[in-house]
Each structure stands twice: as C-alpha cells, then as structure tokens.
Design a protein around this nucleic acid. Structure first.
Lengths: 132, 132
DNA sequence: CTGGCTGCAAATCTTTTGCATCCTG
DNA sequence: CAGGATGCAAAAGATTTGCAGCCAG
C-alpha cells in the first residue's frame, strides 16, 4: 500500500510535506513537539515552515488522527496513538510513556456539578530510570 | 490571626503585594491564570507588575502552597487547593471543577518502564451546565 | 543593613496569522 | 482550474529576564 493510499481516508490534501509529517508520526512513541517534527522533516524538506507543521497538525487533530497533549506546560506535544490510554511522565526529562491500563473512573452524578462527562485522562508522574 | 501570621510559615518575605495575591488565592476555586490574578490585584496595587505575580506564584509553588495546572494549553492556571484531588474541565468554556474522589490507580511494575511513580492526576472532560 | 522583592521594559519562546504563490484533487 | 496548502515574515500571547531602586526581616 502506498502512503497515498494509506492516508487517503483522512480526506485532506496529501502534499509531499504532509506525507513526510505523517511518515514521521506513524508509530512514533516519542510524543514529539511541533519543533521535534519540524526539525526532523526539515532534513527532507529544507524549506519546510512551521506554519505547515502547525497547519498539518491542526488538520490531523480535526480528523482525530492525532492527540494534542497538554502534559508539558512549555509546549504542546502530539501523540499518533489515538486509542484510549494514559500517560506516565518523567518530572525531570519530560519523557512520556503510554499506559494502556483500563481504570474504573466512574463519578457519581452528585459530584459532577451538572457536567456531561465525555472522557478522562490520567497523568502519572515520577522519575524515569535514566533520571534516577 | 493577621494575614502576616497566617502566612509566616511560608518563610518568604511578605510584602503588601504578596499578601494581596495570597488573599486573592485563599479559598479561590476558580483556578485563575496569572492574568486573572494580575487584573484583580492590580485594582488594589495599580503599579503591580506581571513579574511580581509570576515571581510570587513561583515562590508559592516552591513552598508547595499552590499547584500549577497544565489543563489549559493556552496558559498556566493556579490552584490554592493542595490536598490531592482531580479536575473536571469544560471543553468549551474551560471552567475547572475540583473532584475529591479517591481512585485506585495502582500500576503493576511491569507497565511502568522502570519509573518511580510519585503521583497522579486525573482530568475529566466534558461540558458544563452553562455550555450545554 | 542587605538580600530578596518590585516595577518596568525588553527579550524569549511557542503558536498564529496575512499574503502571494503553488499544486493537489 | 479552484480552493486549499506552502513558505516567509510579522504578529500575538504567555512567560522570563535584566536591572536599578526599594523595603521586610
């Protein structure tokens, strides 16, 4: 299957830049920032601009093909793993690891202040083996 | 008890500006941003600067007197409630509500990639009664 | 007294936007 | 061939920093 075929279902224009970004994200477990993506894809496309990176990330987010993570207050990070999961983050080096455990997080309605709850996400924090 | 006495244990210099910020935060459940704090305290101290707000928030964070929330990617928000709790956020208006439920979030060590886990935080998201 | 704090302004960093040109569908 | 995408540069926001003068302890 060509990459064009693989991503046709996204219904977005598949430019070479976008295919390069999609290729970089595919199976990527590093939870990269926009700058990480820019730096990597720039090697292949030296004229790549940040606007294109952000534009593409926005499009992919709207198509539910990636998640935008708020875990690092300094910058957004992106996750191509869209099945429900949680995250474990190193307080020192900000490494992020996926956690696929299933937890029961039901809330009794009297605690939810009238909200309709549509989802949840757990952030575990600690220190990774490298930083210990 | 004067506010001086109330905050002496923080072991930071208690300037009038800092006391005003502490007073604004005391019992505040709105999870304000630095700008919210600046706007409010500026009424009392028209020469207040953002540097002082950030400086004070940084000091309080280091003294474990407030939490810095990453819930809103656009800006940091601060929480004077430091006992362990979780948050419920409205995807539309970004209102944040505290959730004091206790959840069992143990992770088997084979999932934690060698991390020492020191804490966790659950973010519930949904739509508040106002935005529905 | 003196080291930490304040206020102001400039700098930094991430993300967004305007616009002319380009190219996918 | 039209509308969306690209690249560049400038703008926008939030946060940080440098520094001279100030004041709480």
């Amino acid at each position: 299957m060509t990459s064009m075929e693989k991503y046709r279902h996204l219904n977005i224009k598949l430019t070479p830049q976008r295919l390069a970004i999609l290729g970089y994200l595919e199976g990527n477990k590093s939870h990269p920032s926009a700058e990480d993506i820019y730096k990597s894809v720039s090697k292949e496309f030296p004229t790549m601009s940040f606007a294109t990176v952000y534009n593409t990330l926005e499009a992919l987010k709207n198509k539910n093909n990636i998640l935008e993570l708020k875990i690092d207050p300094a910058k957004k990070r992106y996750d191509p793993e869209i099945s429900p999961h949680h995250h474990l983050i190193c307080k020192d080096c900000k490494t992020i690891v996926d956690i696929f455990n299933d937890f029961n997080l039901d809330l009794s309605p009297d605690l939810t202040d009238g909200f309709d709850i549509t989802g949840n996400h757990i952030e575990f924090f600690g220190k990774c083996s490298n930083c210990k």
